[in-house]
Write a protein that binds this DNA or RNA. Structure first.
Length: 588
RNA sequence: GCGCUUGUAGCUCAAUUGGAUAGAGCAACGGACUUCGGAUCCGUAGGUUGAGGGUUCGAAUCCUUCCAGGCGCGCCA
């Protein structure tokens, strides 16, 4: 509707602007004013154009109003307000028509033109032989939502899980776990059962500590690394087994979280191992590579170190090995050349901001991007804090295991479900607890501006009121309940919507904003915009539900209309939550 | 030291990217046909947007100087 409205305004005002010698008015847009008293939409164009038109804003606004007033089919009222705002009050039948057209569409999200933009989302990035902990939560769920949203808008999306699966840590694990693997296999034991990820992590921590004070161990690990890098088949075999054991547990958590990453998305450091040398060679060709203190580096003027000295990006270490920056540069090369990415989005914590800034700058400076105008975006986010405002840790100071955190959320949700809806079967209660508990954790994260750190609180995220997943899920369940009670097939129901009360009107207007919210998330890479929208929508529905009886409404036309509005609210909530990777139960 | 980032109601967060009287939830107080699911809704109270200066029709938002927190700054990722 907004799009049609803007087109109408542009056409209507073209003549007026021409008389004032204004050529470019394409930027003219409408806003939804904060206060409903100021109309359904408002226009600040008169103030923006006043200078160019050499005309007082209020006078210009008055002329614009006079012109817009002729559109009787659209506007019930048009007025000038304040310093030159133009407030537009839509006629109810315009809202009804637009709304009914929208409801009739199959897809709630408009598809991008021309096949969209080939986009890579790099997120989650787990390390092999380490259990997932809170530190992985944000990247995993924010990245997953961005992938869903950008994909839903019709862009081809490739998800990439940049695993930490190569290098010295892996060699250390192999050195330690190798004998255990051999022993288990020799007695034909079940490897997956006996060698858990938790065990692998324990082994890794052990060697890691041992390497520090035992040079013999360190040397042995170094030798493993050399063999691994040279493609020794025995080493590679062990390496592969460890990766699979590790990822099996990661996928258990992804499934629990309803995160869409699968094995095909694994594209870790090991994937680029044979591209590193040629990447460095190509950087060298650019003439920008220099040797400094034995390492091969690229220096760019915009990056300065501690004492103002130039800060390098090291592409090859003194010992000839490559470090993480080289992997990222190789990945950029691959992603633009082979995957033909037009947009690459990295979802990692804010501490890596400088790293990505450097990598992007180097990549452009040395010309390793097959598509020079590819959009490179780092999506930083803050830290998850405990109630003490310090990074969330266990009492003993360790990272909180993601598996344990999620289990606790589900357990707490179960207690709430048991209390609020004792009538559900035990099986349903468990299912609902999972949906509500996981949804709460994800929503708590997604609903805030990702720039900031946030304090993790089960009580707040599971609250049944306010901007939480359970509140949205409850609104959804209530709508389903209406249809259950009436014995109507919710998926097949259709009727024309009409405006008979202000709550209906508000809700219909809000429903028509959905697509805009989704588009904004894709552009700004900020999921909380969609969360805010859904919360406002659910709140709007709750008011409607309170003031507009549906089933007991005597006027059949109004009753059907309310059913239609309710049903479309349900669809919108469900779609929005789906884009957030959160389920919407029909009862809870 | 330099850089990035944050500072909004007692608490947790928003604010359509420069728009109108800065909005929600929690906590507090007061209400709502014995209810289409009260897991809800409506209202009251709560603010010098860290501080000062500037830019303009208009600033939480942009520029600038301070104050306070967090993070980062050569071979870890």
């Amino acid at each position: 509707m907004k799009k049609r409205l803007i087109t109408l305004i542009h056409q209507n005002l073209a003549g007026l602007f021409a008389r004032y010698g204004i050529e470019d008015y394409s930027f003219i847009d409408v806003q939804v004013p904060p206060d409903k008293a100021n109309g359904d939409f408002s226009l600040n164009a008169a103030m923006k154009l006043a200078k160019a038109a050499k005309c007082a804003p209020q006078k210009l606004a008055a002329e614009m109003v006079a012109s817009l007033e002729t559109e009787k089919d659209w506007f019930a009222r048009v007025e000038v307000a304040g310093p030159g705002f133009i407030n537009l009050f839509l006629a109810n039948n315009v809202i009804e028509d637009s709304f009914n057209k929208l409801v009739a569409q199959k897809d709630l999200v408009e598809q991008a033109a021309a096949g969209g933009e080939a986009t890579i989302i790099d997120y989650s990035s787990v390390n092999i032989a380490k259990q997932m902990h809170v530190g992985h939560l944000r990247s995993t769920i924010i990245g997953d939502v961005l992938a869903r949203v950008i994909e839903a808008l019709g862009n081809p999306v490739v998800r990439q899980n940049h695993l930490g699966d190569w290098g010295l840590p892996m060699a250390m694990v192999i050195w330690k776990a190798g004998p255990e693997i051999a022993a288990i296999e020799q007695r034909k034991g079940d490897l997956a059962r006996e060698l858990t990820l938790a065990r692998l992590e324990e082994l890794y921590k052990g060697v890691s500590a041992e390497c520090k004070d035992n040079p013999a161990t360190a040397a042995a690990c170094a030798e493993c690394l050399v063999r691994l890098q040279n493609g020794d088949s025995q080493m590679l075999d062990l390496w592969h087994k460890i990766v699979r054991i590790s990822m099996a547990e990661v996928y258990r958590i992804y499934r629990l979280l309803d995160v869409k990453l699968v094995e095909e998305n694994e594209c870790g450091e090991s994937f680029y191992r044979d591209m590193l040398a040629e990447t460095v060679a190509e950087i060298d060709k650019s003439g920008k590579m220099v040797e400094s203190q034995g390492a091969r580096c690229v220096f760019l003027d915009e990056f300065k170190g501690k004492d103002g000295s130039p800060l390098p990006v090291i592409v090859q270490k003194t010992d000839g090995a490559f470090n993480y920056g080289t992997f990222d540069l190789a990945a950029l090369r691959y992603r633009t050349a082979k995957l033909k990415a037009q947009r690459i989005v990295y979802v990692t914590d804010a501490r890596q901001a400088l790293h990505f800034k450097q990598i992007f700058a180097v990549a452009r400076a040395v010309g390793i991007l097959a598509l020079p105008d590819v959009k490179l975006e780092h999506v930083p986010f803050g830290t998850i804090l405990g109630e003490d405002n310090k990074p969330l840790k266990t009492r003993s100071g360790e990272n909180v295991k993601l598996a344990e955190l999620l289990d606790e959320a589900i357990e707490r949700a179960y207690q709430v479900v048991k209390e609020k809806n004792p009538g559900l079967s035990e099986e349903r209660k468990k299912e609902v607890a999972r949906i509500v508990g996981i949804g709460a954790v994800k929503y708590a994260d997604l609903s805030q501006n990702r720039n900031n750190d946030y304090v993790f609180s089960f009580d707040r995220m599971l609250a049944l009121n306010g901007n939480t997943a359970p509140y949205l899920q409850y609104a959804h369940a209530r709508i389903c309940s209406i249809f259950r009670k009436a014995g109507l097939d919710i998926d097949a129901f259709a009727a024309a919507a009409v405006v008979s009360q202000v709550e209906e009107r508000d809700l219909m207007m809000k429903l028509m904003e959905f697509n805009q919210a989704v588009v904004a998330v894709a552009i700004e890479l900020r999921p909380h915009i969609l969360c805010n929208y859904l919360y406002e929508l659910a709140a709007c529905f709750s008011s409607f539900y309170d003031k507009c009886p549906v089933l007991s409404c005597e006027d059949a036309k109004v009753r059907d209309s309310r059913l239609a509005i309710s049903n479309f609210t349900r669809r919108t909530l469900a779609k929005g939550l789906e884009l957030l990777g959160i389920s919407a139960p029909r009862e809870m």
